[in-house]
Amino acid sequence: MIEFKAITKEYANETALQAINLKIDSRELFVLVGPSGSGKTTLLKTVNRLVVPTKGQVLIDGADVADTDLQTSRQHIGYVLQSSALFPNMTVMQNAAVQLEALGWSKTKIKPRIEHLLQLVDLDPKLYADRKPAELSGGEAQRVGIVRALAADPKLILMDEPFSALDPVSKRQLQNLILKLHQQLDTTILFVTHDMQEALRLADRMAVLHNGQLQQVGASQTILEQPANAFVADFFKEVMATQHTLNQVLAAGFGQPLTQGSSQTIAPSTSIYTWAAILKTDPHLVVQVGTKQLKASDLISYLATLQKEDRQDVE
């Protein structure tokens, strides 16, 4: 568990963070999201003390990072930077092994470990182990960056806008990879991004920052449905515009009057994607929304109307 206690960071003529209090649970994929200059990266870097806060404490599993040996604690924290930041003078294998070498692992132990991790991120060790970073695409380089962070099997991985420089396809692939790895591994991930789509996709929970102040903390859906203030609502406005809620389905004229025995009640502001996810596990489920009930066929019909709308747009 990571605990930020009243973290304040002041620079000569600005305050980057103002008394941030935040708790992140173990094994959580927690996203810090906000526009640039909001202080999210600064907050992330207080964890491995690349930034030393002016006031406040950061506790990892109850231990203040200011009191632990810096080099040792960093050796047990994975770190993924923007644009991979691989050392251009080293091969993929050497890059990935930096933390293991710092930990004093023997060469014979390092090699199979890195090869295993390269496979985990879908890079063939035979093809990639001896390449130099200059011979990798942006997405491949960032996969190696992830391997480097995973190498020492850390309990905590910090990711600082790792995919911001990637093309949309690579970005989506790597987001899937992170979700997969998070499921497989027993690791807390603290992920910084300015991309709200990315935040919504990845986060178990997220914290929204703006001007060094915490705006809202919660699960994606909560933040979308109940934005705490105008800034949060505005920040996610674009996403909201493309969201289809059950309210919209009802407004389009779908749904039947309630009958007895319909099973599950969900909020009208729920997105149709969440509804689709629920239907996936139980295709025959009938959900109750306000005074109406909706079936799987209603979802399909609603989606079909969207198709018609698109056509009309074209015509």
Partner: peptide, 29 residues
Amino acid sequence: IDPLLIEAADAMGVSRRYKLMRVQIPLAM
């Protein structure tokens, strides 16, 4: 040297000697 690379080395918790001999001097070579 690109400060991002120095940051990466620091964040990995490598020793000063390792950083100098394996990162800084080779990159400045």
